[in-house]
C-alpha cells in the first residue's frame, strides 16, 4: 500500500510545485487570514479580552482557519476539476493501487499544502506582530485538522455533481465553522445551547489544541476526538473512491 501512497503523493506534489510557481497562489492563500487578522485585530482588539492578548488569540484562530480552508478547498477543487474538466482522476482510478492509498496520497499532499500556507501565516504573524503562536498540541492539532479536511475534500470532490454544489458545502459547513468555532472569539461568549453544539465541531477542537500548552485534560480529549473525526472521514472518502463512477 505504501508504494501506492508514495506514487500518488509524488504526483500531487509535482503538480503543487508547478502551481506554487505562480506568486498569486502563495499570496492569495495569505490574503484572507491577513485581512482577518488586521481587520478584526484593529477593529475588535480592544473590546475582546482574552488571556495573552487578542492579537495572539486571533493569530491562532487564523492558523486554524488557514489550515481548514486550504486543506478542504484546494483538495476538493482539485479533485472535482480532475473529475469534470481534466478527466485526470481516471488516471488514478485505473491504476492498480488500493482505494485507501489513493485517498491517503491525496490527503497527505493536501496536508502538506495546508501546512505550508499555515507556515506563511505563522511567519507573517511573527514578523508583523512579533508573536510566536504555536505550541506542541497546537501543531498536532493543525496536522490532524489538515489531514481530516483534505480527506473531506476528496470525499466532497468525488460527491458533488457540479461546481455549484461546492458552494453549498462551503456556505452550510465551512463558513459557520469559520465564525463560530472559537477562531475569532472564545466559544464561551456564545449562548450555552450553541456552545454545546459548536464545541464538538472539528475546528473547535483545533482551536482548543492551539490554545493548549500540553495534552492534559480537555486538550487530550480534543486530540483524540480529532483523530476519530479524521479516521471516519478517511474511511468515508475511501468508500467514495471505491464507488467512483464517471456517470
Amino acid at each position: 500500500m505504501m508504494g501506492g501512497v508514495q506514487a500518488v503523493f509524488y504526483r500531487e506534489m509535482l503538480m503543487l510545485v508547478r502551481r506554487i510557481g505562480g506568486l498569486g497562489y502563495l499570496f492569495s492563500g495569505l490574503l484572507f487570514p491577513m485581512i482577518y487578522l488586521l481587520a478584526f485585530g484593529w477593529g475588535l482588539g480592544n473590546n475582546i479580552s482574552v488571556a495573552g492578548g487578542y492579537i495572539a488569540y486571533l493569530a491562532k484562530g487564523m492558523l486554524a482557519i488557514t489550515v481548514m480552508m486550504n486543506a478542504f478547498q484546494q483538495t476538493a477543487l482539485s479533485v472535482s476539476a480532475a473529475r469534470f474538466y481534466y478527466r485526470t482522476f481516471a488516471v488514478l482510478r485505473l491504476s492498480p493501487i488500493s482505494d485507501g492509498a489513493i485517498v491517503l496520497g491525496i490527503a497527505l499532499a493536501g496536508t502538506v499544502r495546508a501546512l505550508l500556507a499555515a507556515a506563511v501565516v505563522f511567519i507573517a504573524a511573527k514578523l508583523f506582530f512579533g508573536i510566536a503562536v504555536l505550541t506542541g498540541p497546537g501543531f498536532v492539532g493543525l496536522v490532524l485538522t489538515a489531514f481530516a479536511f483534505a480527506a473531506f475534500g476528496v470525499a466532497v470532490g468525488l460527491s458533488i455533481k457540479g461546481q455549484e454544489q461546492f458552494s453549498i458545502v462551503i456556505n452550510f459547513f465551512i463558513t459557520p465553522m469559520t465564525f463560530f468555532c472559537g477562531s475569532f472569539f472564545p466559544i464561551a461568549n456564545l449562548p450555552e445551547v450553541v456552545q454545546d453544539i459548536v464545541r464538538f465541531l472539528p475546528l473547535s477542537l483545533t482551536n482548543q489544541l492551539l490554545q493548549a500548552t500540553n495534552f492534559v485534560g480537555e486538550a487530550g480529549i480534543a486530540a483524540l476526538a480529532l483523530v476519530f473525526f479524521m479516521t471516519v472521514i478517511y474511511l468515508y472518502s475511501t468508500y467514495r473512491v471505491h464507488n467512483y463512477s464517471e456517470f
Binding site: R11, L14, M15, R18, R87, T88, V91, L94
Partner: peptide
Amino acid sequence: LMGLVPQENTFESEL
C-alpha cells in the same frame, strides 16, 4: 490487466 486511452486528453496540465 487493462490500459485505457480515452477520447479526451488526460495528461495533467501541470506536468
